[in-house]
């Protein structure tokens, strides 16, 4: 019984997600690309990068990349903490 209700709710949510995907603007034709066209037009001149994705990752959205490195650092510290050597009285 519980599983049936859960399955029904799950299918309902799934249907909504698919509906949203189907109702988005058509694939391959971005509705508004002001920001991205700016990157494409100015990345070479402003950032001196031939690869625009690099320009976005390391310059225009460099703060996100810092955040990404921070998440990685946090995960490393977390894993180190999980497997650290414990003191005698902590075991």
């Amino acid at each position: 019984m519980k599983r049936a209700v859960l399955a029904a709710v799950f299918l309902f949510v799934a249907a909504f997600l698919l509906l949203a995907a189907a109702q988005m603007r058509p694939f391959g034709s971005p509705a508004s690309a002001l920001m991205d066209d700016y990157f494409l037009a100015n990345a070479q001149a402003e950032v001196a990068a031939n690869n625009v994705v690099t320009a976005v990752v390391f310059d225009y959205r460099g703060f996100d990349t810092l955040g990404e490195a921070t998440v990685l650092f946090a995960a490393v510290v977390g894993v180190l903490a999980v497997f650290r050597k414990l003191r005698e009285d902590e075991r």
Partner: peptide, 16 residues
Amino acid sequence: VAWFVGVLGVVLIILA
């Protein structure tokens, strides 16, 4: 997770 999906479903219905 099931409770999360359930609340998501209810909110989706109401908003739709």
